[in-house]
Design a protein around this nucleic acid. Structure first.
Lengths: 192, 192, 192, 192
DNA sequence: CATGAATGAGGGTTCATTCAT
DNA sequence: GATGAATGAACCCTCATTCAT
């Protein structure tokens, strides 16, 4: 039993189940019992790995952040050129959401208490995502004199909002056009 | 016997409590017990007026739609000129949300089942809101030759997404700048 | 409004609904709400006519006694001859039960308290039914020297038990053969 | 750790309480709250052992079947000779019922839905009981030329009905004579 | 005589969590 | 490191009944 590559241990199974169920059904609507049952794990084993549901929620968000960052980078690096890389964010958003929206936005909606540890995780991710957009916009600005007049702060915030709006509108209406419209709007903002 | 001022009946108290709690805490996170306790109503009285929690949820969304539409109109009519009226939507969105987001988006996030009656209500409202934006953009287009080249379909969808994004980003980050950025983006789109 | 023939008044509607529902679903399993809803009667009207559910239950049993007695007499009088009349009870039992058993046995099963007013009604009916059987057996005994040696007490009790057993077995198994077997057994007892 | 004598576990306590209360008060009339209170068990512990009230009902019926079968065999084996053994069923029935009737008949009366899992259990038990009677009658037929002309099918069905009738009449009237009469009738049928 | 609103107690069930082993 | 039993609070909902009008 090679423990290093043993990714099918209880902890991993629980986490994968949580990723599936929290995203599909929501954090509150998903009970510990369902997670335990679908993970094929004993109840006390669950609490051995995750002291509380909130801790699992945090692990879930962190896993989503890693998965998301990884996928994001794949999308970005699949194209060349600063403009294409910036716009690839919208293709990424389109795949990620799948009518169930952003895991972080969703949890922020479900958890009202502003000082919850879960909301801290949301802040962290959204800050990271915002900085990612900022960098891509900044790269664009520095790449060519054509974009040298860009207000990086404004444009990156604007694109961030467009992405958030596209994802949540797509979730609410269960349609895909918001992603396309958001991308088209971003292009217009950039004058392309 | 004055029915107009008779707003203190139990049904009204329940509904007002639901508006407060569903919006603040979320639909799932708010239990019937808390609602009846804060409404000062017996449990069976609650079910006399609302056959189920879902029915109260529907009444809640319809009340939010009425309240929202009313407030929306006030904002729109508080200014003159088609551009000002269109842009007033952002001021409205800023007040409505208050870091707790859109009641309809929130419920759509909490309820994953796509054929829930609650989601039907969300569809109805979002369609209405989309049409409202479309009309305001169309009015702008027809108001002056300056805007005659506007693609009403695209611009209205774009503004809709910007508003949704502004509201949800504001909710997630508990900040107000997304509203301003979204409005500024809309202005840019319109070339003003 | 001819009040004498006005059998569609609220009280009558409630009683007819109760006869249908108590027999089909059982006394405990049938709620007041369903009765008033299907009777198209206001709740307080119900309690005006029947001070409690138990009172409706008593009225229900009395109505069943009248209906049963009436149908019983029809069956008995549809044939001539003391033997045929006695045996007609089994045909009657077969029709009455219809897989839902005897209304009186059923209530006695549902209500455990031995001093309930409902159980008093059951006693009254079962005593009446027992006496009816006794009379029919006694008539048979007196009708011909062939039956003069009959032990009326034993035979009537025996037939009573056979009928009760046939009805309840038919109810439990949802089959009709118990009625035929019981009648055949009765014939054997009488030597015919 | 002695599992054989470990009859004091919560599951066992719940089941014993259910046997007592379901039989005395009826299945519907007995609430989960009363069961857990008298079992000295927490509510969630109850649902840990029995997923629903219906499941407890099924366990109750199966326990009654085992208990009944065991007691039945004791009565049968307490005497010798095929006739005595057949007739011992009536003594058994007299003890079993105790004015509260047959647990299976009672549940079949309370539950009207024909496709309930509880009714399936009733079918199973009544089929078993019918076959038991058939065997005892068949044994009698084969035991002596005196009984060789018996119609096993008819006689066993007839005796089955007599037992059901005796038990339910005893329950309805709260008297013991139906048992004696039924046994006497059975003797007559057999020509003894 | 009729009405709908209002009630407290209880229905069956699930929650996230902790315990002894 | 892993297990299943046990928990109290809370879940949504229905019961038979009474009230003011």
């Amino acid at each position: 039993m090679n423990r290093i590559s043993d990714n099918n241990g209880p902890r991993q199974r629980i986490l994968e189940t949580a990723i599936r169920l929290f995203h599909q059904q929501g954090y509150i609507a998903t009970g510990i019992n369902q997670i335990i049952h679908e993970s094929q794990v004993a109840k006390a084993s669950f609490y051995h790995h995750f002291p509380s549901k909130e801790d699992l929620g945090i692990a879930y968000l962190r896993a989503q952040r890693e998965l998301g960052e990884c996928l994001e980078n794949k999308y970005i690096e699949s194209v060349t050129g600063p403009l294409e890389r910036l716009l690839s964010l919208f293709r990424f958003a389109g795949e990620l959401a799948g009518f169930r929206g952003c895991p972080f936005m969703n949890i922020a909606t479900e958890i009202s208490s502003q000082d919850s540890r879960l909301r801290q995780e949301v802040f962290v991710e959204k800050k990271r995502a915002g900085e990612k957009v900022w960098k891509l916009v900044n790269n664009l600005k520095n790449s060519s004199s054509r974009y040298s007049s860009i207000d990086v702060e404004f444009i990156s915030n604007s694109i961030f909002i467009l992405m958030e709006g596209a994802i949540s509108t797509s979730q609410t209406l269960r349609e895909t056009w918001p992603i396309q419209i958001a991308q088209k709007t971003a292009k217009k903002l950039l004058g392309v």
